[in-house]
Design a protein around this nucleic acid. Structure first.
Length: 307
DNA sequence: CGCGTTTGACCAGCGC
DNA sequence: GCGCTGGTCAAACGCG
């Protein structure tokens, strides 16, 4: 198990990309408000509420060399694993030519919009499937019905890429692994996780980028219906409200982001949304490492820290 | 014993 | 229709 100090700052540059939209020539304010207008916001996905109160006040300039990344998950999905990273890089370099998707619909959206057809699949399936064991058939049907209903309620997804040596990045919630699949053209498997909370339907996919094994792609699907278990472990005055990444002292955070020593002293508790050379949001997670930015923290680091 | 992981099998969707 | 792939299930297993 690696020690915290072995983790360099540059190993945890998060790169966010969202399902449903990308607007590279939008300001962060535009981005966030656009996204918050959708049924499921980025912060909501992480259990954050009331993030709309965040304002452009938190926007500050970064050096032009800062990578520019803003792509949607379906872009990555459409690209083979070995190309996704190239895609990111090209987007990063492109700056103004960064892909402007602003896609009104995504694979997810279309699947949701086509939910009206789903009931017919059940009927077909029952005609085809005649198992000799009635019990077995019953469970199959139940599974199918379950799957159908799940598909009906398919949640928007968002994903982000993190440079990390650790596959599973802690985010304050408890996850149970329910599957692993080999990824085509990639030596690295994709892991499937589900939130352990009974009432919570949030899923998480974790895979490593083929072309750059140092990059971990984490995809969230769904919305937590409960507070982070870490809230109990790490009490904070801000815990109840789950403050937004934007709600922090910008100067302090910028200093910390650009100062590895500061990071070493305080753990890595920041994330950055980087679009067109601007770091739109540097997130300081309430000083207790909750929520999204725990995804940027190797679980090993957190475990070590909590002891 | 409870909880989490592993892993082979199954199913649906999609492209050809 | 067929094959491929992504996603999920669930029994078996491991661990504390």
């Amino acid at each position: 198990m690696e020690s915290y100090k072995e983790i360099k700052m540059e190993d945890h540059h998060p790169i966010f990309f969202f399902d449903n939209y990308v607007a590279s020539n939008h300001t962060f304010t535009g981005l966030m408000s656009d996204y918050s207008a959708s049924s499921l916001g980025f912060m909501e996905l992480l259990g954050v509420q009331d993030f709309c109160s965040a304002s452009a006040n938190s926007v500050f300039e970064l050096p032009k060399e800062e990578p520019t990344v803003c792509i949607s998950e379906d872009q990555v999905k459409a690209s083979p694993a070995d190309e996704s990273q190239n895609h990111v890089i090209s987007s990063s370099v492109a700056g103004d030519s960064c892909n402007v998707l602003n896609t009104p619909s995504t694979p997810n959206c279309s699947s949701i919009s086509s939910e009206g057809h789903l009931h017919t699949e059940d009927a077909d399936g029952e005609l085809v499937e005649h198992h000799h064991q009635q019990q077995h058939t019953k469970t199959k049907q139940q599974l199918k019905a379950k799957k159908t209903s799940e598909k009906k309620q398919r949640e928007p997804r968002f994903a982000f890429m993190t440079k990390s040596e650790v596959d599973f990045l802690e985010d304050g919630y408890r996850w149970r692994k329910y599957g692993q699949k080999a990824v085509k053209n990639s030596p690295f498997p994709r892991n499937y996780y589900r939130c352990t909370s009974a009432t919570c339907n949030v899923k998480k996919r974790v895979e490593r980028c083929f072309s750059d094994p140092s990059i971990v792609v984490t995809t969230y699907e769904g919305k937590h219906t409960h507070p982070s278990p870490m809230s109990a472990i790490l009490p904070s005055p801000a815990t109840a409200a789950f403050p937004l990444p934007m709600q922090f002292n910008i100067n302090q955070s910028f200093n910390e982001l650009t100062n590895p020593l500061a990071l070493n002293n305080q753990l890595i508790d920041h994330a950055a949304f980087v679009v067109q050379g601007r770091r739109f949001c540097t997130a300081k997670m309430m000083g207790d490492h909750q929520g999204l930015l725990q995804d940027l923290m190797p679980s090993a680091v957190l475990k070590q820290d909590h002891r």
